[in-house]
Amino acid sequence: MRTETYEPHLMTVAQVRDETADVRTLRLTFTDPALADSFAYRAGQFAFYSAFGEGESVFCIASSPTETGYVECSFKLTGKVTSALRRLSEGDVMGFRGPYGNSFPIDEMVGHNLVFIGGGIGMAPVRSILVNCLDRRSEFGDITILNGARSAADLVYRDQTDAWTARSDVRCVKTVDPGGDSEGWDGEVGLIPHVLERLAPTPHNTKVVLCGPPIMIKFSLISLEKMGFSGEQVITTLENRMKCGVGKCGRCNIGGAYVCCDGPVFTAAQIAALPQEF
């Protein structure tokens, strides 16, 4: 068992999947079988992923706690560490430490209608809680899924989105920004807030999970408010640069709240009460 705060677990890359040209999903299994059994996390939590020799990056865990035996992360190619993580192939060893942070309040979501909205790579944390809820489908009311991207080529979890669409017990819509559709696109065309307004989910007894780039969050919140959703009904995640995950390194705070410990999951009402510095 790991005793040091910053020492990662060694993981084996069990599967590499390309979601888009620059988004990749890695499935990781513990090299230590005892850890594989004892490891537990909640949807919405994040972790640090090490490419030894280059450093660590932080992503949410994209798999669901109900998917046991492995963890998955989806990440976009942006810098030094993500480049190194992309160089890994199946069977390679990398580091993982976590889980950190709070999680989506799944117990409070029980009995509610749910709306899941993910924009771009923001679909990764949404996927974790979404799959978790789908695996406990009977505990929830209506489920609506909106997976959006800039263009058809940038849409993540495409096969899974199609599988959700095929289900009769959920309403699943995929959308791309105007101009982002390509030949054969069978989803919606329109910005997420606009498509959301067309879908018009009822605010009554509903919880919304909303993750994506800041600009999408901003306008989606405006639309949700217009539709009658309160800040407490909308649950989202924040991300900030972080190095420790345990409230020490001092860089992820927004006002007095540390994204690593008090987040990454916040309600829209909580975010509105924070200094606007993110």
């Binding site: 020799g53 450093g55 660590e56 420790c244 020490k248 390194c249 001092g250 860089r251």
Partner: peptide, 17 residues
């Protein structure tokens, strides 16, 4: 003040965080 960065220093044989 206690803010810190975490960096890797490495070569082909190994390294340290």
């Amino acid at each position: 003040c206690h803010c810190f960065d975490v960096v890797d220093e490495s070569n082909l044989r190994g390294g340290q965080r």
